[in-house]
Design a protein around this nucleic acid. Structure first.
Length: 644
RNA sequence: GCCGUUGUAGCUCAGUGGUAGAGCACUUCCUUGGUAAGGAAGAGGUCGUGAGUUCAAUUCUCAUCAACGGCUCCA
């Protein structure tokens, strides 16, 4: 007998060799039907794998992460089985579960796969699912495994085997399909009831663009059709929040083939948002002791050689223009220009910290396949600033920058984000990172300390730093589920030296300042893209391009509407009158769809009482107010930058 | 940049080897209406661009540009 400890602490005795599934059955048949896998002593196991020793046990169903990922992993095998039966001779690479579903990478040889093939594959998968084949695990000696794949002429699995040792190699078989796989898997294919293959994509073998491109098929499965339907419904809802769709519907921005890929033109509505964001940034930065500067969008090659950018980043800069024997680059970053401003006049320790800010326009030649609405563009406007300070001042300065981030997040109600402390990799010193091993370790520790002291939650990642120092990236997710760096905050111990930036210390020696690069609001492009999705287009009043729409019941009341419009404009409220000859219902509908926060409905009753009927977007009629009262309240809402 | 899909009116989308349609938007007229679509008429497209096949191409083929889904990349 073995004793099994359950998550609630209960301990029960079972026969040696019982599987998690057997144990689940002893509790209830209903539970046993839902069990997908089990955590045995903290490791995820097949539910039908015999347990031979005393162990702790947690049964995993669909709602536990381990359960879901096992389910999708097994679904990938089911898909592979279907692919193999429809396309014999296919060779498989890997097929892991991902956040929403799974994929499998494969080499189809000369064959191409089409959308229709996906439907055929889905159908086949459903047939195979109905066979209720169990996933069976088998430990295989390495030599035997190698021979198996030599016989199959499968160089991909042989490559995988190279990294594995004898004794840790397992095969899984369901139906007619056997795969080299660590597992675990769900008990049988019949659990996979709802299947949707979502798309076909190319993917480089081992994620390296020098390697061959394999075919990747993505799919998602669920234990019940209802859940698949809900998932598809959710995708539809997410599409409505897509900033590209909202950007068009709300006339925020446009692009044009003649202008170029990834080059945004902001329409009047989008420009209002930009100006409000800049106003916020300028207020905040002025209060925090920043001074503003303005610098050109281009510079000579020599500056980017000095800064050290060219060897690292020439590929993502627009190619240089030649003028009178000089090469000029469109800038991809603002820092070198700012360093030149620091260097323009001699600095003393009394001038530090020296903080300069600019909404800097930069151009980056992003690969064409990477461009994505407002989120990834080739001309961007950064909420940039550089702080030059002494080592002693660094902690306080870096901390203040982080506090500014948090202040902004509060204004915009951003609570889902991750601060990512990006570190260097020692092996890449001198290749991807400046070769200053001690300085790297020292500055990384300085940054880590600030994060710890501020109590900001963060994760550490290796090999993500800038070439000149560690950084903190703020990661957010678009409604489509793509991850983006919204803002960045970097330490630079390198460029100060390369630009020979100096200040005189108290005892009249020269020192090089530490530089902090920071952009809490990221770029206009990405930040507005994010805000559109974040608010589903329903921007807070202070950001709304049109804040108030006045809707006369009929054109008898146009004159009264115009009077109100003048008063609103005097109070700096962005307002318009709907003077079309339409019924009030139509005017309301159109204004609602344009997501304008306030509608003022004026007819005979309102005119006689010198009032307005107020309607809030998405909320409906909120009653009648005197014009002055509405203006006072709205001005307050705008000035406080309230979200609702 | 790579793999795949797509490209018809301002928007959303039908359609065809014999030079094109709907709804919404737009213009004009009627209507002057009380909290999410009043009615009628009209205008608008060399079917992304270039070449090829054909008596004839928006439709078939190729190239190219762009968008979309991924991969790679992301200062």
């Amino acid at each position: 007998m073995i004793s099994i400890t359950f998550p609630d602490g209960a301990v029960r005795e079972y026969e040696k060799g019982s599987s998690s599934l057997d144990i689940a059955k002893s509790i209830s048949e209903g539970l046993a039907r839902k069990v997908l896998a089990a955590e045995v002593d903290g490791q995820v196991w097949d539910a039908n794998r015999p347990i031979t020793n005393d162990a702790s046990l947690k049964l995993l169903t669909w709602n536990e992460n381990g359960g879901k990922s096992t389910f999708w992993h097994s679904s990938a095998h089911l898909m592979a089985e279907a692919v193999e039966s429809l396309f014999p001779g296919v060779k498989f690479w890997v097929g892991p579960p991902v956040e929403n579903g799974f994929y499998y990478d494969m080499d189809l040889g000369d064959r191409k796969i089409s959308e229709e093939d996906l439907l055929a594959l889905e159908k086949k998968m459903k047939e195979l699912s109905k066979e209720n084949n169990s996933y069976t695990r088998k430990e295989v000696p390495k030599a035997e495994a190698v021979q198996y794949f030599i016989d199959k002429n499968d160089e991909y699995k042989l490559d995988l085997l190279e990294g594995l040792n004898d004794g840790e190699i397992t095969f899984y078989t369901q139906g007619n399909f056997t795969d080299l796989c660590r597992g675990p898997h769900i008990p049988h294919t019949g659990l996979i009831k709802a299947i949707k293959l979502t798309n076909i994509a190319g993917a480089y073998w081992k994620g390296d663009d020098k390697n061959k491109m394999l075919t990747r098929i993505y799919g998602i499965t669920f234990p019940a059709q209802k859940e698949l339907d809900e998932y598809l419904q959710m995708l539809e809802e997410a599409k409505k929040r897509d900033h590209r769709k909202l950007g068009k519907e709300l006339s925020i921005y446009t692009m044009d083939e003649d202008v170029g890929q990834g080059l945004i033109m902001w329409l009047p509505n989008g420009t209002v948002i930009i100006e409000e964001l800049e106003k916020l940034a300028k207020e905040t930065e002025t209060e925090a002791g920043y001074k503003r500067v303005v610098t050109p969008h281009i510079a000579k090659e020599s500056m980017y050689l000095t800064s050290g950018h060219l060897p690292y980043y020439a590929d993502s800069m627009y190619p240089p223009m030649e003028m009178e024997g000089e090469k000029y680059y469109l800038r991809a970053m603002n820092c070198p220009h700012h360093h030149k401003i620091f260097a323009a006049e001699p600095k003393s320790y009394r001038d530090l910290p020296y903080r300069i800010a600019e909404y800097g326009t930069v151009y980056r030649y992003e690969q064409s396949g990477e461009l994505f609405g407002l989120m990834r563009v080739r001309c961007l406007h950064m909420n940039d600033a550089h702080i030059y300070c002494t080592k002693d001042q660094f902690n306080a300065e870096f901390r203040a920058v982080n506090e500014m981030y948090l202040k902004y997040f509060k204004i915009f109600g951003i609570d889902k984000y991750v601060m990512r402390l990006s570190l260097h990799t020692p092996e890449k010193l001198g290749i991807k990172y400046v070769n200053e091993p001690e300085l790297w370790i020292e500055t990384e520790e300085m940054v880590r300390n600030v994060l710890k002291e501020s109590g900001i939650p963060y994760v550490e990642v290796e090999d993500e730093a800038a070439f000149y120092g560690p950084k903190i990236d703020v990661q957010i997710w678009s409604v489509i589920g793509r991850e983006f760096t919204l803002a960045t905050n970097q330490v630079d111990f390198s460029q100060g030296r390369s630009f020979k930036l100096q200040y005189n210390t108290q005892d009249n020696k020269t020192e090089t300042p530490i530089i902090i690069h920071r952009a809490p609001l990221g770029t206009h492009e990405r930040f507005i893209g994010f805000l559109l999705e974040h608010y589903a287009g329903k921007l807070p009043v202070w950001l709304s391009p049109v804040q108030v729409k006045i809707l006369p019941i009929s054109d008898k009341f146009l004159e009264y509407a115009e009077t109100i419009l003048r008063n609103l404009k005097k109070a700096d409220i962005r307002a318009e009158v709907d003077d079309r000859q339409e019924k009030i219902g139509k005017k309301i509908r159109d204004t609602e769809l344009m997501k304008i926060p306030y509608m003022l409905i004026v007819g005979e009753k309102e005119m006689n009482e010198q009032k307005v009927s107020v309607r809030r977007q998405g909320k409906g009629d909120i009653g009648t107010k005197a014009v002055a009262e509405f203006i006072a309240e709205t001005v307050l809402e705008i000035n406080e930058r309230r979200e609702e």
